[in-house]
């Protein structure tokens, strides 16, 4: 948990909502749901210590290991 990064992200997220919300008044509900869900995903992810955490990039490295070994030869 890194509070600094999380706080910064929260501020940015709030700014984005303030900026974007008035513009999407006419958009269907689905748009708003997608907008908020994606923002929330970002916010939740920002709480973790990302560089040290295993993630998609790490999985890709594992997935492509044989090729990686070929390149390191």
């Amino acid at each position: 948990m890194r509070w600094g990064a999380f706080l910064c992200t929260s501020v940015i997220v709030i700014l984005i909502i303030l900026y974007e919300w008035p513009k999407m008044k006419k958009n269907p509900k689905k748009d708003k749901v997608a907008f908020l869900t994606l923002l929330l995903t970002g916010l939740v992810l920002a709480m973790f210590n990302l560089p040290q955490m295993a993630g998609p990039t790490q999985w890709m490295v594992t997935l492509f290991r044989p090729f990686g070994e070929f390149m390191e030869k």
Binding site: T9, I12, V13, I16, Y19, E20, K23, M24, N27, P28, K30, D31, K32, A34, F35, L38, L39, T41, G42, L43, L45, A46, L50, P51, Q52, M53, A54, G55, P56, T57, Q58
Partner: peptide, 21 residues
């Protein structure tokens, strides 16, 4: 109906993915 609402949230995700692992 429009791609503009997702631009900002994706920006945050891009920054997050640039750090992840």
């Amino acid at each position: 109906s429009d791609y503009r609402p997702v631009v900002w949230p994706i920006g945050i995700l891009i920054v997050i993915f640039s750090f992840w692992s």
